[in-house]
């Protein structure tokens, strides 16, 4: 079915930056995949075009909101993100390495967990709700300044046990439909499942702006939706299971460009 194959197209951002949307699979997934492909290649012509230009990408509106937030002092310390990090560009490249092991905390952290650490421990403010408004907007903003850089999450050393848990979850056949992530995204990418064109299910494009719900959607919310669709009891956003799964899924896309905020139907 030629219609269901990923397209042969090149993603050039704002007519200047060429992004890597296909590359040789990293060694740790080479037994399952030869090539890893961004979800962008599995979307329609118009959706792809929207993502290629910041003026057309509705996700960039939320990035602008986050840029304001970046400068806004909050909490008992009277500080904003910019008080310590200066320009947002100073964090360019950070998104590409998350989830990441945090030595002091002794845990693997997602970008949102790290942002909340700054909010609660350094600003004296409250934690943002996982995948909700300000958190997902800020994640999109930090992603936007990393666009074009290769996803490069570490899976060895202290992160290894979380990575292994994530891998186990990826291959677990959940719910009454007994479907694993691999059933859909490894064995059947390129195929239609009812009205949906299955991609390899990478997270390099997150947060994604979905035309369907007209907002930014986080990785853990996507995982939740996919697991719910197997008629399973899901995990919640920010849970250790989803942190581990995000690390594992992100690692499958090592080498693809950071694309978020991307556009999906």
């Amino acid at each position: 079915f030629a219609s269901a194959d990923p397209v042969d197209d090149t993603l050039i951002l704002n007519e200047e930056t060429e992004l890597v949307t296909r590359t040789t699979a990293p060694a740790h997934v080479s037994d399952a995949l030869d090539e890893v492909m961004s979800g962008w290649l599995f979307r329609g012509t118009e959706t792809r075009a929207m993502q290629a230009d910041d003026f057309d990408n509705p996700g960039m509106i939320f990035v602008e909101q986050a840029q304001e937030m970046w400068e806004t002092a909050e909490g008992s310390e009277g500080k904003s993100c910019s008080s310590c990090h200066n320009d947002m560009e100073s964090l360019a490249g950070v998104k590409a390495t998350y989830p990441k092991w945090n030595e002091a905390a002794g845990e693997v952290r997602t970008l949102q967990m790290q942002m909340n650490d700054c909010r609660t421990n350094r600003m004296g403010s409250d934690a943002w709700k996982y995948d909700k408004g300000p958190a997902i907007n800020m994640e999109a903003a930090l992603s936007s300044v990393s666009r074009g850089l290769p996803v490069n999450v570490a899976i060895d050393g202290p992160a290894q046990s979380a990575w292994e848990l994530g891998k186990e979850l990826y291959y677990t056949r959940n719910g009454q439909l007994e479907l694993s992530c691999a059933n859909c995204h490894e064995e059947n990418y390129g195929n239609m499942i009812r009205a949906d064109h299955l991609s390899q299910g990478h997270v390099n494009g997150f947060p994604v702006y979905r035309l369907k719900n007209t907002k930014l959607n986080g990785v853990h919310s996507r995982f939740k939706g996919c697991i719910r669709d197997t008629r399973a009891e899901t995990y919640s956003q920010g849970s250790p299971e989803f942190v581990a799964l995000e690390l594992y899924v992100a690692s499958r896309g090592n080498g693809l460009s950071v694309e978020g905020p991307s556009v999906r139907n």
Binding site: G175, E178, K224, I227, R228, D229, A232, E233
Partner: peptide, 10 residues
């Protein structure tokens, strides 16, 4: 089943 759900409610 592993983590059976209540239909599609999650």
């Amino acid at each position: 089943f592993i983590r059976p759900g209540n239909a599609y409610t999650g």
